[in-house]
């Protein structure tokens, strides 16, 4: 067993705050309400913090630690296809793609959401339609994210959800590197 500090408090705070605010705004809070807008602005602030932290944050929080890479992602698919285990300390390559997809989805939601409050775009059909379509696609992506985390935890023997709570990944014995 090897314990590695991976996710700093800001990353974990961001992750669980986004879970809470996104779920609340998508299903619990009335779309027309003032609260929906306030929670939306909170997500804008959280995204701003995450982007800043991606530039100046701790090692595994930085974008340079998990660049979007197709060859690396395909190598991870190969690991899955052949039952090989190469452990990733920070985000795995496939995980990295999901992070960027979710961040972009949230950014698009925030942008169209804010547009709807402006005089210029208020009541315009396509803005609202994009906002709703992005909500569905982001929600499905989040479900795929959760499923992938469960599957990868079982495959690699590293409890990923626990790492996002405690900040520490417990790597199994069987680790050559």
């Amino acid at each position: 067993m090897r314990k590695v500090k991976v996710w700093d408090p800001i990353i974990r705070l961001f992750h669980w705050s986004v879970v809470l605010t996104f779920v609340a705004n998508a299903w619990a809070i009335d779309d027309e309400s003032k609260l929906h807008q306030q929670v939306g602005w909170l997500i804008v602030a959280l995204l701003g913090l995450r982007v800043l932290w991606g530039l100046v944050g701790t090692q595994h929080a930085r974008f340079s630690d998990f660049p979007p890479s197709i060859p690396a992602a395909m190598r991870q698919v190969q690991d899955i296809a052949t039952g090989r285990l190469h452990h990733h300390i920070g985000h795995s390559p496939l995980g990295a793609w999901m992070i960027y997809a979710l961040l972009l989805g949230l950014a698009g939601l925030c942008a169209t959401g804010v547009m709807m409050t402006t005089d210029r775009f208020w009541g315009i059909g396509w803005v609202e339609e994009i906002h709703e379509a992005l909500m569905v696609v982001t929600a499905v992506a989040a479900c795929v994210h959760v499923a992938a985390v469960v599957i990868e935890s079982r495959r690699t023997g590293v409890n990923l959800p626990r790492a996002m709570i405690t900040g520490t990944k417990v790597m199994p014995h069987d680790d050559a590197r």
């Binding site: 060859p71 190969q78 909500m135 569905v136 696609v137």
Partner: peptide, 27 residues
């Protein structure tokens, strides 16, 4: 590059179809 162009095409198709399925299901 595991999978090569063919593998990449397949993976891309899966992502695209996933997006479409999400959209229809959402509706």
């Amino acid at each position: 590059f595991p999978g090569g162009a063919e593998g990449l095409g397949l993976a891309g198709l899966m992502v695209l179809q996933g997006g479409c399925a999400a959209f229809f299901l959402g509706d």
